[in-house]
Design a protein around this nucleic acid. Structure first.
Lengths: 116, 116
DNA sequence: CATATATTTGGTTATTTTGCCAACTATGCA
DNA sequence: TGCATAGTTGGCAAAATAACCAAATATATG
């Protein structure tokens, strides 16, 4: 028994829960995908438009969108030739407030480390 | 000009900001590290105790802690033989509320997809 | 039907991340 | 001083990611 690695003494349920959370957070953990989420906070966008803004190959953008969709962060709808993406769970945005305060704390500490 | 890849038309400042955010989110994007953050929300812990709970090699746990520290999410303090870690920016916890609602939305959709 | 546009998918290579072991550092204590 | 305990660091192999190109799909239109 206990062939698994990590967090091994924990009950299986809590372990699954942590893995599920990590999958979603991982989906957000890329600059391009953060850009997309930020952009979609202003309303839906089609892949072509996002691709123009991002500047990567469209296949790369499409794969980023697929990661976000897979995680349940965005949803898509095909209309004619285009596919439109939108945020599925907008609270994702609050999220950034805290990230920002980590960054501020880091910056503050960096200033203090230099002497001011 | 514009040798960079991705989000290429964006101004440099916004780009840096997205990268900084992604770095922090990436630090959270692992089940073990989520476990640690969750654990530290109840107060500081030493590496030895976290290691017992997690069940990985202590060097593995130490590296996870180092990732979190590097990102500015936790801080450490050596006391005698032990090193105690604590959350540096507790708002990180709010964070999880939204992750949870993504998971719930996913689960709901999965149920509906099955026909109920 | 043939063609053009929008997007996804498959395949490949390069890079990053994980996790373990071994070696090293730091601290406390006999 | 010598030994034990707690943690970090270096090194390595395996696994996961990322980005590009080419090929495949799907839809609209002449």
């Amino acid at each position: 028994m206990q062939a698994d690695k990590g967090i091994s003494s924990m009950n299986q349920k809590k372990k699954k829960q942590l893995e599920a959370r990590a999958r979603i957070i991982k989906a957000l953990a890329h600059p391009t995908r953060l850009f997309i989420v930020d952009e979609l906070s202003g309303g839906e966008q089609c892949v072509c438009e996002l691709t123009k803004m991002i500047g990567d190959d469209i296949s790369t953008v499409s794969k980023h969108l697929s990661v976000l969709k897979q995680a349940g962060i965005v949803e898509d709808e095909k209309r004619g030739l285009q596919v439109w993406y939108s945020l599925r769970v907008p609270c994702i945005l609050n999220f950034f407030g805290c990230i920002e305060s980590v960054l501020e704390a880091n910056a503050k500490q960096a200033r203090e480390a230099v002497g001011r």
